[in-house]
Computed example of a mutant assay.
Amino acid sequence: MPRFSGKTVIITGSSHGIGRCVALMFAQDGANVTITGRNAQRLQETKQQILNSGVSECHLNSVLGDVTTSEGQDELIKTTLDKFGKIDILVNNAGASIMDISGPTGVDQSMDIYHKNMQLNLQSVIEMTRKVKPHLMETKGEIVNVSTIGAGPHAQPDFLYYSIAKAALDQYTRSSAIDLIQHGIRVNSVSPGIVVTGFIGAAGLENESARKFYEKLASNKQWIPAMVAGKPEDIGNIILFLADRKLSSYIIGQSIVADGGSTLVMGVDFGAAMQ
């Protein structure tokens, strides 16, 4: 029997990248899955990919919406409960480094950019956790947050506000884990390093430039000692592990780093790599 048979999972930011991969992995492993995103075309592509893998549409709930809004959050939860009757797992995956397209970098970026980064990468997680808590209390469920190695102790001037938001998310993971374990809810996170997704494209690089970016990073062992960029499946496997209470029941409030060894040397100069 698939290990998540009968379980219901909400995955935010599941219209592409790691979120899409994780949705497919959960669905193929027996879960009822709610996918969501703001881009209708990409969300439909995720849905079709899951259906094409042999998963029945009765196990899939697709919600076009914005997880940074109260309305979007409520719709996610309501439609999931309406279709599947419960919530067992919440994967807070939605996130992005929102850049100031007008040009300023570092501390010169506007407060509007700061608030947008915080709203997506931190506040939406806090709000979703609060709203899903009573349902996870009933199922003794799991929360898995997706952070980044950019939240670590090394300075990130190119992604200043994003890194601040994710560093706060790491503290929220630790603190909420201790608060919620008394109710039988486990909270953990994964911190990816360089993973080939649309993330860099969203930060301003075109497809060909993004490809060269990943190749440049992987070719330098001072940036990625494993000398290979990660795949969404690498992160997906960790998320499913953390969501599987049989395998990870004694892990509480931790973040698993998956970065090919980058944080052990931390020689990555993102600004140089993007040039």
Rank of each mutant, 00 (worst) to 15 (best):
F241W: 02
T129R: 09
T69W: 03
L240T: 06
Q156E: 15
S5V: 15
Q123C: 07
T36G: 08
G85F: 02
Q222E: 06
V33F: 13
D112A: 14
G72M: 05
E138N: 13
D158Q: 14
F26N: 03
T36C: 14
S102H: 14
S70E: 15
N220A: 06
D66K: 02
K7T: 01
S255W: 07
V195Q: 07
G152R: 10
L90N: 03
F213N: 12
K212F: 04
N61C: 15
D179L: 11
L242C: 06
K78R: 15
S219R: 00
I11D: 07
V33G: 09
Y172A: 15
D66Y: 00
D29V: 00
A40N: 05
S110I: 02
I89W: 07
E75D: 11
Y172K: 00
S175A: 13
V67K: 11
M111H: 12
P134N: 05
Q73G: 06
S175D: 12
D29I: 04
T69V: 04
G253A: 11
G17A: 10
G150M: 05
F26S: 03
R211W: 09
F84A: 11
A27Q: 06
V67H: 09
Q119R: 13
G150R: 03
G271M: 14
V55T: 13
A151V: 07
L180H: 02
S255H: 11
G6A: 10
I164H: 09
L51G: 08
K166N: 02
I77G: 03
L180Q: 08
G65E: 09
P134V: 12
L240F: 06
K83H: 04
D74M: 15
Y172P: 13
V91A: 06
Y250W: 12
V67M: 09
R42M: 13
G267K: 03
I252D: 01
I126T: 10
L60A: 10
T129C: 01
Q171D: 12
R130E: 14
G261K: 05
G150D: 13
T148G: 07
V107E: 03
R245C: 07
S262I: 02
I185F: 01
K166D: 02
A151P: 00
N188Y: 05
N220M: 01
Y114R: 00
G267L: 05
G141P: 12
G19R: 01
H59E: 06
E75T: 15
A218V: 02
T36Q: 11
D158M: 13
L90S: 07
G6T: 06
M99Y: 04
S97C: 08
G230L: 01
F159G: 13
L64F: 01
I178E: 12
L169S: 11
T79I: 09
D244M: 00
A226D: 04
N145Y: 09
